[in-house]
Amino acid sequence: MPHMKRLFAAGLVAASTVFGATTWAQAADQEVNLYSYRQPFLIKPLLDAFTKETGIKVNVVFAKKGMLEKIKAAGDNSPADAVLTVDIGRLYALKEGGVLQAVKSDTLEKNIPAHFRDPEGLWFGLTSRARVALVSKERVKPGELTSYEDLTDPKFKGRICVRSGKNAYNVALIASMIAHHGEEGAEKWLQGVKANLARKPQGNDRAQAKAVYEGVCDIAITNNYYMGKMMTNDEKPEQKKWAAAVRLTYLNQGDRGNHMNVSGAAVTKSAKNKEAAVKLLEFLSGDAAQKIYAEDNQEYPVKPGVPYSKLVQSWGDFKADTLSLEKIAKLRPAASRLVDKVGFDDGPGS
């Protein structure tokens, strides 16, 4: 009964349109569906620029937990075309989860240096960020703290502030310590840092700088761009005071360089709008977008030749650790277990 079939199919179409099922109702249009670990209001200028240039609309849904499981469960029907993340751990988990597809694009390969992307093209780094020390201008002399290893020096006892060891950025940092010093060495190091903490790990990166300003501690471990964001925060001018109290210090400049992380993007295996998704990635790695990243977010653009923001430049040149991001990602579970083992989040004196 062809009639019945058509009727049924029409009903399904109607139902899926009514309830907002996006997959094929929108497949024909030029658009791309993006799952983002970044807040939409942060990436809106970028996406607007992309739409303006290409005419492709970007639908964003913001989530932190469960994104991988959601894509995995939906399988071929997943509406997601691309994913945007803020740390290597998520990119790697998506890759391991088998939900990404390899992208071959000359533009991407040209724009992004090889160590900032997956060798098979499963993910691409878009910006990099350094995990730096913000030290008190008053209480820490230049040259007093030069490396991550220095953080265990007894002279810093009760002077260090950092957020939870389970935070993705710290897990990546600890993973890099495992890569360089082995698990035992990293454990000893983490123990040493813990012993020097001024308080129980808490709050976010900015809160650590604030604590230095308040005199709670002298050294804060944060991502570099937070310094820039505090310095330029007109809505909350008190953050400028926090930033004014600290000096940004790159670490391990004498040897391997400062630990780095990336924000990145990837195209999903099930992407219905693969072409548009690749276009988006290419756009985000291009000059215009990289400039927005640099100027608005105070991150390091991955594309060679795109200048850092003036502010970032004012912190001077630095040497970045070239440790493979993939290696860091693989060591994350071990790093996370180390945090448990050491009892890092219990704070000093426990």
């Binding site: 399904l12 179409v13 139902a15 899926s16 099922a21 996006t22 997959t23 939906a74 509406p79």
Partner: peptide
Amino acid sequence: DNSIDAFSERVFGVSTGLLFSGT
């Protein structure tokens, strides 16, 4: 959703996508 989609694809030649989980 995927079972419904596969069924509908096979019987009606129409993909229904994520009828429930996508809504």
